[in-house]
């Protein structure tokens, strides 16, 4: 079922993120097929999909961790393939594996990242200290990253992703393993970034978080973009398509979970349940 609320064939240069016919194959498997994605500047964008739909493949291509088989990517108005360094300078990323260096301390790691992004020594050190305090990672200064808990590593990866004040931030499951207090702090930090004009591209399986944070959403299924638009546009689209389903067609405000299940066809009949389960 395709819910094409927003066609993305407009001029690519106006968007913070724009892809055209983006495709990635792994042998016979087409992980991402002809994706035309468009994210405007200043949007908090949620990228959703079932497991194996192609979310991580897409985010890896958008951040330079994976080369596309075909198609184009434009970030902040620059073609990624022809200007990789200039583009990377303006984006921040928390990849799937967090990309940390285990045998550095948190402070050393942030200083390292800052300098790799072109900050001078003093600025990198100043921002590293601020970020460590903000992320509540400052109280164990000699602890190596390899000895951090999963949640602490996640917070450090987030700190590293923003140390150079990127224009676009890519976050792959950013809240996974982060405690509630830290998650609240992070959310407010991300919202402040949006208020200052940054663009955030986020994947998460926790639909409540996406619904609360994101203004726009895209849904990918089997490598193809099946829905894209603002939450209100998606709600309207689902209602328009669901004349036979009273619950969806009624005036009640649809949750993102309902939209998601409608789009990816995730509902099960009782016959499909595993009868042998206790």
């Amino acid at each position: 079922m395709t819910l094409r609320v927003l066609e993305s064939t407009s001029a690519m240069s106006a968007a913070a993120i724009a892809t055209q016919a983006l495709t990635r194959r792994f042998g016979e498997l087409v992980a991402v097929r002809d994706m035309n994605l468009e994210v405007s500047s200043g949007q908090f964008f949620g990228f959703l999909g079932p497991n194996g739909a192609g979310k991580s493949t897409t985010i890896k291509m958008l951040t330079g961790l994976l080369a596309p088989t075909s198609g184009s990517i434009e970030l902040v108005g620059l073609d990624f393939l022809s200007h990789p360094v200039e583009v990377k300078r303006q984006i921040g990323v928390v990849p799937e594996g967090m990309a940390l260096f285990g045998r550095l301390t948190g402070n050393e790691y942030l200083n390292f990242v800052g300098r790799m992004y072109g900050l001078d020594r003093q600025t990198a050190a100043q921002r590293a200290a601020e970020l460590l305090e903000f992320m509540q990672l400052a109280d164990q200064p000699k602890k190596l990253v390899t000895d951090y808990s999963h949640g602490m590593q996640k917070k450090l990866a987030l700190a590293a992703a923003v140390i150079h004040a990127p224009k676009i931030l890519f976050l792959d499951e950013p809240f996974e393993g982060v405690d509630a207090v830290a998650a609240g702090t992070l959310k407010s930090m991300l919202q402040r970034m949006i208020a200052r004009g940054a663009t955030i591209f986020l994947t998460s399986h926790v639909l409540e978080i996406v619904e609360r944070l994101c203004s726009h959403v895209a849904i990918i299924q089997r490598g193809e973009l099946v829905a894209q638009g603002s939450l209100e546009e998606l709600r309207a689209g689902v209602r328009a398509q669901s004349t036979t389903n009273d619950a969806l067609a009624s005036g009640a405000k649809l949750t993102l979970e309902e939209i998601f299940l409608h789009v990816v066809g995730g509902t099960r009949t009782s016959e499909q349940e595993l009868s042998w389960l206790g």
Partner: peptide, 9 residues
Amino acid sequence: GVQFFFASP
């Protein structure tokens, strides 16, 4: 951490 080298400018 090698991912960082590919993601960095």
